[in-house]
C-alpha cells in the first residue's frame, strides 16, 4: 500500500463529505419517506418522480444544474453571496452534490422500513391519545430506525463514489475538494500514476465492501422482523 499525504487528505475529505451529506439528508429523507408512506396528497406521484430523478439522471447533468443554480448568476448563488458564503469550488458544494445524488437511495431504504410498520401500531397510538406528531416521534421514528441506518449506509457509500456532479460544482483541487474518485482520475491521466491509483482503488473497494456488508446485515434483520 502506497499512499501519499495528498491521498490521505483525499480519503479524509471523502469521509468528511460523505458523513456530512448523509447527516444533513437524514431528517429530510425521513420526512420525505413519511410523506410518501403515510400521507395522501395531490402531486404525490410528481414528488416521487422528482425525488427519484437523480437515480437515473447522469450525475453530470445534476452537477451542471447545481452549478447554474448556485453559480454567480443563479438564484441560490445570489442568496449565498449576500450571506457572505463562498460555495462553488469548496467542499460544501461537494456535500450538496453528494446529497442530491444519494438522496433517493436514502429515501428508498427508509420507505422500505416504514412500509414494514404495521398500520395498527399507528392506530393504537392515536387511539391511546397521541396526536400525529407524537405518534411520529414515539412509534414511526423508533420503528424506522433500521431503515434509516440501512439508508444511511447506502447513501454514505454512494457519496464516497460521487464523481460526475462533484467535479463540476466543486472542481478537483488537491487538498481542498479532491476526493478519492477525483484523485484516482488524476492518477489515471498521468503515465506514472498506476500504483498510486491502485492503492486508492484498494481503499475504495475496502470502504465500499465494509459498508455493503453492514447494509446486508441490517437488511437481513429488517426482513426477519417483517416475517415475525
Amino acid at each position: 500500500m502506497n499512499l501519499s499525504p495528498q491521498d490521505i487528505t483525499a480519503i479524509g475529505l471523502s469521509m468528511k463529505i460523505a458523513i456530512t451529506a448523509t447527516a444533513i439528508s437524514l431528517p429530510f429523507g425521513f420526512a420525505t419517506a413519511w410523506l410518501m408512506v403515510f400521507r395522501s396528497f395531490r402531486g404525490k406521484v410528481l414528488l416521487e418522480v422528482f425525488v427519484n430523478l437523480p437515480l437515473t439522471l447522469p450525475p453530470v447533468v445534476i452537477g451542471y444544474l447545481l452549478l447554474l443554480f448556485f453559480g454567480r448568476n443563479g438564484w441560490g448563488g445570489g442568496l449565498l453571496k449576500s450571506a457572505g458564503i463562498e460555495f462553488i469550488f469548496t467542499w460544501k458544494a461537494a456535500v450538496v452534490a453528494s446529497a442530491t445524488v444519494g438522496f433517493p437511495l436514502l429515501v428508498r431504504s427508509i420507505r422500505l422500513g416504514m412500509e414494514s410498520i404495521d398500520q395498527q401500531f399507528l392506530q393504537a397510538s392515536r387511539s391511546l391519545g397521541a396526536p400525529w406528531y407524537d405518534t411520529l416521534a414515539t412509534v414511526v421514528l423508533p420503528l424506522s430506525f433500521r431503515g434509516m441506518l440501512a439508508g444511511s449506509a447506502l447513501m454514505f457509500a454512494r457519496s464516497l463514489g460521487e464523481f460526475g456532479a462533484t467535479i463540476i460544482v466543486a472542481g478537483n483541487i488537491p487538498g481542498l475538494t479532491q476526493t478519492i474518485p477525483l484523485a484516482i482520475y488524476d492518477y489515471a491521466s498521468s503515465p506514472t500514476g498506476t500504483t498510486m491509483a491502485l492503492s486508492l482503488c484498494a481503499v475504495s473497494i475496502f470502504l465500499s465492501a465494509a459498508i455493503l456488508l453492514l447494509h446486508e446485515v441490517i437488511g437481513k434483520n429488517l426482513e426477519n422482523r417483517r416475517r415475525a
Binding site: 395498527q120 401500531f121 392506530q123 392515536r126 387511539s127 420503528l143
Partner: peptide, 20 residues
C-alpha cells in the same frame, strides 16, 4: 374530533403491542 381526543381505546385482534 381527532382520534386522540375521543378517548376511545381499541383492543385489536392481534394485540398490536409496540415492539420497541
Amino acid at each position: 374530533i381527532a382520534p386522540e381526543q375521543r378517548r376511545i381505546s381499541i383492543v385489536f385482534q392481534h394485540a398490536s403491542l409496540f415492539p420497541h
